[in-house]
Write a protein that binds this DNA or RNA. Structure first.
Lengths: 146, 146
DNA sequence: GCGCGTTACGGGCGCCGTAAGGATG
DNA sequence: CATCCTTACGGCGCCCGTAACGCGC
């Protein structure tokens, strides 16, 4: 079992959907699905009922995530004490309209640079908001189709 | 950070030596050394003072291992609840005199079979004890140079 | 057909082992 | 020179991404 898998699980429960969780975790949906399968196999339990409207936890799954949170809480304590997040990160933010190529390029950038030194933010909004974000220095980069 | 790395750290502290810990963990000493370096780099801390007589924890290292134990305790709770150890494992034990080739073959076996279904034990002792172990069914296999 | 999750498969990175190096008693 | 740890380097396994599939609305 990897700590990462537990974090994945948390996100899935939070969103109620493997698809949505995968987007927020910046990984592909099959990878996430497989990661959960691995844990289910490792502990020989079933975590979710898979339905067409996302997923719901089984009773075992509910119990499992309680233990999982105990672990993640301890991990967070360690990370906070030993400066995983204490060092102020540089910020790089992009505001733009919703286009697949924007999201894709942004994800690729995040993966290439890594999140050790930078805090990345992508804001998907409307034309005028993009202009405002740039004018107020809320984002470093704006994309419009004007 | 991997849970495995924390378990490695525990063993090193327990034995006071990277060399000895590596033997007990069935991994090579450089691998273990590298695993600790990775954590030190990840959190930008120094865990040990490396001396010729093994290692000793730094103050930061002492604090780190306290957090580490908090995590491992939670992990153990989960493992115990979800049957990592509950299913009784088959036992395969070997008693023999201390020979490098015996240790090597044993380790290779453990790696090949895996520790999911079997509980492996290697007893290194003297000729008579080997005979006793076999006679009392304490071990399944004995090796002597008679 | 669209949206959800799964299965199949190839590639790249990371962990481990072997070998060689450095330091200290 | 013996012991302990580190550095260098190659291989294999594992995780992820792309692609194709199954299934229900």
């Amino acid at each position: 079992m990897r700590i990462q898998q537990l974090e994945y699980l948390e996100k899935i429960v939070e969103t109620g959907s493997i698809n949505e969780a995968a987007k927020q975790l910046f990984i592909s949906q099959p990878s996430l699905s497989q990661a959960m399968k691995e844990m289910e196999k490792e502990y020989k339990i079933q975590l979710f009922y898979r339905t067409k409207l996302g997923i719901t936890l089984t009773n075992e799954g509910r119990e499992f995530i309680n233990y999982s949170r105990g672990i993640l809480d301890q991990v967070n304590l360690l990370d906070e004490r030993f400066g995983k997040t204490t060092t102020r990160k540089h910020i790089f933010s992009v505001s733009g309209q919703h286009y697949a190529f924007v999201v894709h390029a942004f994800v690729e950038l995040v993966k290439k640079i890594g999140q050790d030194e930078y805090q990345f933010t992508l804001r998907e909004t409307q034309t005028q908001n993009v202009l405002d974000d740039i004018q107020t220095f809320k984002s470093e980069l704006g994309l419009n189709d004007l």
